[in-house]
Simulated assay, not measured.
Amino acid sequence: MRKVNNVLIKHIQRNIITYFVVIMFFLIGISSGAFTTKALSDSENGELIAYLENFFKIVDTKTIDNFAILKQSLINNLQTGVLIWILGVTIIGIPAILFLIGLRGFIIGFTVGFIIKQKGLKGLIFSIFSLLPQNIIIIPGIIVTGVLGISFSVMLIKSKVEKNVHNNILNQFFVYSTVIAIVYIFIALGCIIEAYISPLFVKYLSVYM
Rank of each mutant, 00 (worst) to 15 (best):
N5S: 07
L83A: 06
Y208S: 12
F26Q: 00
I64T: 09
G141V: 02
H166L: 15
M1H: 05
S130T: 15
V183F: 08
G46N: 06
T63K: 12
A50V: 03
E194G: 06
G190P: 00
K160A: 09
L40F: 11
L40N: 03
L200Q: 14
Q72E: 14
M209A: 08
S127W: 03
G109C: 03
K158M: 10
L189S: 06
I125L: 09
K57P: 00
I128T: 13
G141P: 09
I16C: 01
R14L: 13
E162P: 00
I17G: 02
D60E: 15
Q172M: 11
I157F: 10
S127A: 15
F110S: 05
Y184L: 06
L27I: 14
I97L: 03
N171P: 00
I92N: 11
L131R: 10
N77D: 11
I116T: 11
L74S: 04
S151R: 14
L200H: 10
I192Y: 14
Q134A: 11
I169C: 02
G29V: 02
A39G: 03
I128D: 07
S177W: 05
L121G: 03
V165H: 11
Q13T: 04
F20N: 08
D65M: 05
K163H: 08
I97V: 14
I169P: 05
V82C: 05
L87S: 05
Q172D: 13
P199Y: 09
I192W: 08
K122A: 05
F26R: 00
W85L: 15
V175T: 07
S73A: 09
I136N: 06
G123C: 10
A181Q: 08
L52F: 03
I84P: 00
N168F: 12
V202I: 15
F186A: 11
F20K: 12
S153G: 04
G93Y: 12
N167F: 15
M209C: 03
W85T: 12
I197Y: 11
K163M: 06
I94E: 07
V22C: 01
I192T: 11
I94P: 04
I28G: 07
I69C: 02
L170N: 13
K3R: 03
G46W: 01
I107Y: 15
M155Q: 13
P95H: 09
R104W: 06
N168S: 12
T111L: 14
Q79K: 11
K117W: 02
T61P: 01
S206H: 07
A68T: 13
I193D: 00
L132D: 07
V59L: 10
K71N: 08
P199L: 08
L121T: 13
F114E: 01
V4I: 13
F26K: 01
F186N: 10
L78P: 03
F201P: 10
F114I: 01
I58W: 04
Q172F: 09
L148I: 03
T90M: 11
W85G: 06
F129T: 06
V202N: 04
I75D: 01
T145K: 04
F35S: 07
N54G: 08
I115T: 13
L205E: 10
K57R: 08
I108A: 12
I185M: 09
D65Y: 05
